[in-house]
Amino acid sequence: MDSPHSDVTGAAIRAEGFGLKGPRGWAFRGISFDADPGSLVAVTGPSGSGRTCLLLALTGRMKPTEGRARVGEHELPRKMAAVRRLSALGQVPGVSELDPALTVAEHLRERVMLQRRYDGSVRALLRSPAQRRAEARALIEQSLASAGLDLASLPKRDRTPVRDLERLEALRLTVALALIQRPRLLAVDDTDMKLSDAERSAAWALLRSMADTGTTVLAVCSEAPAEADTTVTTTETGADDGATSEEGAGDAFATTGSA
Rank of each mutant, 00 (worst) to 15 (best):
Ala57Thr: 15
Ala134Leu: 01
Met1Cys: 08
Ser121His: 06
Leu125Gln: 15
Lys79Met: 13
Arg137Cys: 00
Met80Glu: 11
Gly60Cys: 02
Trp26Lys: 10
Asp158Leu: 03
Asp7Arg: 11
Gly25Asn: 12
Cys221Arg: 13
Gly148Tyr: 01
Met193Ala: 14
Leu195Gly: 10
Ile31Tyr: 06
Asp119Ile: 01
Val92Met: 05
Ser153Pro: 00
Asp158His: 14
Ser258Arg: 15
Gly67Trp: 10
Asp197Pro: 06
Pro93Leu: 12
Arg14Trp: 01
Gly19Phe: 04
Thr235Glu: 08
Pro64Tyr: 06
Pro77Cys: 08
Ser143Phe: 08
Arg200Ile: 00
Thr59Ser: 10
Gly90Val: 09
Val104Arg: 07
Arg159Glu: 04
Ala259Tyr: 07
Ala11Pro: 00
Ser153His: 14
Ala228Glu: 04
Lys156Leu: 04
Ala124Ile: 01
Glu227His: 08
Glu236Gln: 15
Ala178Asp: 00
Val112Tyr: 06
Lys156Val: 00
Thr191His: 04
Ser143Pro: 00
Cys53Ser: 14
Thr52Met: 03
Thr215Asn: 10
Glu110Ile: 12
Arg159Tyr: 01
Ala243Glu: 15
Ser6Ala: 09
Thr65Val: 05
Ala124Asn: 08
Ala254Trp: 13
Cys221Ile: 06
Gly45Pro: 04
Ala249Ile: 02
Thr231Met: 03
Arg116Asn: 04
Leu139Asn: 05
Gln91Pro: 04
Leu185Pro: 05
Asp192Val: 09
Arg127Phe: 01
Leu114Glu: 06
Glu166Asp: 14
Met80Arg: 11
Arg85Met: 00
Val217Met: 06
Glu135Asn: 13
Trp204Gln: 08
Ser32Gln: 07
Arg109Met: 00
Gly148Ala: 02
Leu55Cys: 15
Leu165Ala: 10
Leu126Cys: 13
Gly67Pro: 04
Gly90Asn: 09
Pro129Ile: 14
Gly67Asp: 10
Arg29Leu: 00
Ser258Asp: 15
Thr160Tyr: 09
Leu20Ser: 09
Glu110Arg: 15
Tyr118Gln: 10
Ser146Leu: 07
Arg111Leu: 01
Gly22Lys: 10
Val8Asp: 03
Pro183Asp: 06
Gly248Cys: 02
Leu108Val: 14
Leu76Trp: 11
Arg29Thr: 00
Ala35Ser: 05
Lys63Thr: 08
Ser32Asp: 14
Thr9Pro: 00
Leu179Asp: 02
Arg132Val: 01
Leu40His: 09
Lys156Gly: 02
Pro161Ser: 05
Gly60Glu: 03
Arg123Cys: 00
Thr215Phe: 04
Val8Gly: 11
Phe18Gly: 02
Leu56His: 14
Glu135Cys: 04
Glu247Pro: 05
Pro100Asp: 06
Thr256Ile: 02
Gly48Asn: 07
Asp7Thr: 12
Val122Thr: 15
